[in-house]
Each structure stands twice: as structure tokens, then as C-alpha cells.
Design a protein around this nucleic acid. Sequence first.
DNA 1: TTTTCATATCTATATTTCGCGATATGTAAA
DNA 2: TTTACATATCGCGAAATATAGATATGAAAA
Lengths: 100, 100
Amino acid sequence: MNVVAISKVLANDTRLSILRWLKDPEENFPPHKDIDHFDDGVCVGYIQDKAGLSQSTISTYLSLMQQADLIIPTRHGKWTYYRRNEAVIDQYMKSLRQMI
Amino acid sequence: MNVVAISKVLANDTRLSILRWLKDPEENFPPHKDIDHFDDGVCVGYIQDKAGLSQSTISTYLSLMQQADLIIPTRHGKWTYYRRNEAVIDQYMKSLRQMI
DNA sequence: TTTTCATATCTATATTTCGCGATATGTAAA
DNA sequence: TTTACATATCGCGAAATATAGATATGAAAA
């Protein structure tokens, strides 16, 4: 867990928003068609619609966030669902508070 | 107080280190020649020596950090001393935790 | 009142990031 | 076994950032 690396990922309005939206999928996204819960998170298309940026940009952002271990992907058929990695997010906040 | 703007400033090893060093000047810097306390912080030259980057780079970094209200400058004769702005740092941590 | 010293600002270049369209990949549907 | 769809990756130009040297500024010392 690299604090500065994670700070870089979070130093972007869209990426910070995505992390926030994923905290409450019911509130921020429509229900998925194939499943009736958000246990594995939210599919890329919904995140893209909400963010209003191109498909490739959002996919790249999600990839960045995943490389930083902030989110966890799960494949369901054609779709990839992303959910928060609460343990890492928590650890980041704790480390940052201690460092700062 | 803009959370993303502050995150950008802190998403850099040197700048994060500077903020940490300023938390304990006695521990991290030699005593100043003209004054025997660090109440107004630490002069630019000492910070530059410790960081090992050029004078202009450190001055630019400190200026960035000041624009983000993370540090407060005080002029003492030829020297500029910088100290932490604990209120803003605290508010940043609180906001980030709530957002994240 | 020149000179010196500490810091700030300007200018320049290299690297990184932003964001996109085009294309590739993997999966399910037809 | 093609086709269609969701997502990932590639390649790109534009914008921002990192970092330095040169120069300017402001204050004290000579």
C-alpha cells in the first residue's frame, strides 16, 4: 500500500466520484438487469453513463483504481462489475492520517 | 478548501515529506541562527537541504503548498519561514474521510 | 549605497496525465 | 460459427507537472 500512489489516483474529480458512488450503488445507479443486488459492485457501462466520459477513459480509470487496489473487479458474463476494496481504503486513510 | 486540489499537492513524495517534517522541526532541522524556536516554522534553505532538490523547485513546491493553504509563510528579515496550517490539514482529513 | 544573501519568479525541457477514437478481446446470442 | 455487445487496450495530441538554471526582488551587511 503506497500512500502517494493512491493519492495520485484520488487526485482526480472523476475517480474520486466513482469511489464515492460505489459506496451507495442503490442510490447512484439503476438496478442491473440480470441480478437484483450490487454485491459485486456496478458494471462499467453504468459508471460511464454517470461520469459522462468516454468508454475508454472510464475503463482506463477503473483499471488505474484497480491497480491501486482501491476497487475489485468481478466478471459476470459480458459485464465487469467493480466494487470498493474497503480494507485498502481504510488502510489508506489510517496511513495518511498518521503520516500527515 | 478543495479536497482534490489538496490531494494533488500531496500526491508527491517530496511535498508530502515536507509536510511531515514540519510536524516536528526540532527533530528534522537544525536550529535557526537568529531565533531559538520554530514557532513560525522552518526557513526555505533548511527544507531545501533536507529535500535535496534545487532551490527553485523547493520554492515552487512551497508556493504550491501555500496556495493550497497547507502551510503559512512568515517573513523574518531575509528569511521566509513556513509552518503547517493545522486547521486546513485537519479539515482536509475530515472531508476526505467523509467523502471516501 | 553597493554588495551580499535568501527567496521568488521566469523560462525552458522532459515526463506524466488527460481524454479520445480506433481497435482488440472475450462472451453470449442468433 | 457468425454476429453483436461489453469491456480492455493501443496510439495519439493536448494539457499539466516536475525540475532545473537564469534572473529578479527584497532585506541586511559592509
